[in-house]
């Protein structure tokens, strides 16, 4: 009954499986995201010749933050942060329910906007510069993200995640350029060096803690949890490029997700922070050449009936 209603209301096939996926995402994503963050820190430490914290350290950090005294710099910041978490989870729900890719992208933008406004609302120079830089990064990666959705649309014929997964062949066969472009901008989305302009886990940040400067206690904990959700669902995008109906592809896709995540860790530790000009120039050039170039070729292949 409920499922029928949802199917009617949301258009796509809202089966039991979708609901299972949604629940799994909401419950497991923070665990997976937290563990990935822990491994990331461990690996980074090893690359830097340190022993590093335990894998579960991110969870310990969050629990500790939760117990801090509740202080804030104004009445509104907490609301914005709460809304950030809420819409990040909602974005993931749209994605894991097999929904529309553009809907996913737009609700992700809405969520990010709450984080940015939250930082702006503090009116602290550090937070404000961080927030402006985050905006700049958004402008840098947005074209490539949209082109990714367009790429899937051209190959599959719809924007629905469920349809992409139901295809007979992995989309990456047609979208190699888009895939590389997407992995490139993931560095910005994960806020890894050389593009950790807005805030960073590394000590070399000149902006204190950038966007997060004025977040403390529970608010900061919420931001961490949101990022775990966000990272898991971004890896879902990577998964989408490779997974199709065959079991082999699903296993490969999961492996590629893990590989991409640690590849980003590797990049993070191999590069110093670069200037904002590099971030926007390189992302736009990648979007133009790899992203749009790929789509342009696909158009002609379609036109001449080759695919």
């Amino acid at each position: 009954m409920t499922i029928d209603f949802l199917t009617n209301a949301f258009g796509f096939n809202f089966g039991v499986l979708n609901i299972v996926f949604i629940i799994l995402f909401v419950v497991l994503a923070p665990l997976v995201g937290g563990i990935l963050a822990g491994i990331d820190r461990k690996l980074s430490a090893r690359m830097q010749g340190r022993f590093g914290p335990p894998i579960l350290q991110p969870f310990f950090d969050v629990f500790k933050l939760m117990e801090k005294e509740g202080i804030t710099v104004n009445k509104y910041q907490d609301f914005y942060m709460g809304a950030f978490l809420f819409f990040i989870i909602l974005t993931g729900v749209f994605f894991f329910a097999g929904g529309d890719l553009l809907l996913v992208i737009f609700s992700l933008t809405l969520a990010s906007m709450f984080l940015i406004v939250s930082a702006f609302s503090a009116n602290s120079p550090y937070a404000e510069i961080g927030a402006s830089r985050e905006l700049l990064q958004m402008m840098a990666y947005e074209p490539m993200v949209l082109l990714t959705a367009v790429g899937f649309y051209i190959v599959i014929g719809t924007f629905n995640v469920a349809d992409v997964l139901a295809a007979g062949k992995p989309a990456i066969i047609y979208l190699p350029g888009v895939f590389i472009g997407f992995v490139f901008i993931l560095t910005l989305k994960f806020r890894k060096s050389p593009f950790d302009l807005s805030m960073s886990h590394h000590a070399h940040q000149e902006l204190v803690k950038g966007m997060a400067t004025e977040f403390s206690g529970k608010t900061l904990a919420l931001m961490e949890i949101s990022h775990w959700y966000e990272n898991v669902f971004l890896l879902g995008f990577v998964y989408l490029f490779i997974a199709c109906t065959s079991w082999v592809s699903i296993i490969i896709a999961l492996l590629v997700c893990i590989f991409v995540y640690f590849f980003e860790t590797f990049i993070d530790n191999s590069f110093a922070r670069m200037r904002w000009e590099v971030a926007i120039n390189s992302s736009w050039i990648v979007a133009l050449i790899l992203g749009f170039g790929n789509i342009f070729v696909l158009y002609f292949l379609k036109l001449f009936g080759i695919i």
Partner: peptide, 28 residues
């Protein structure tokens, strides 16, 4: 295909100039 190119880059710019204004307004 060129329309897509114009649209995706234009949309990114739109996001940027509105959001930076919004940020200024929302500062407390």
């Amino acid at each position: 295909p060129f329309l897509i190119l114009l649209l995706v880059f234009g949309s990114a710019a739109t996001l940027f100039f509105w959001a930076k204004w919004l940020g200024k307004l929302c500062a407390i």
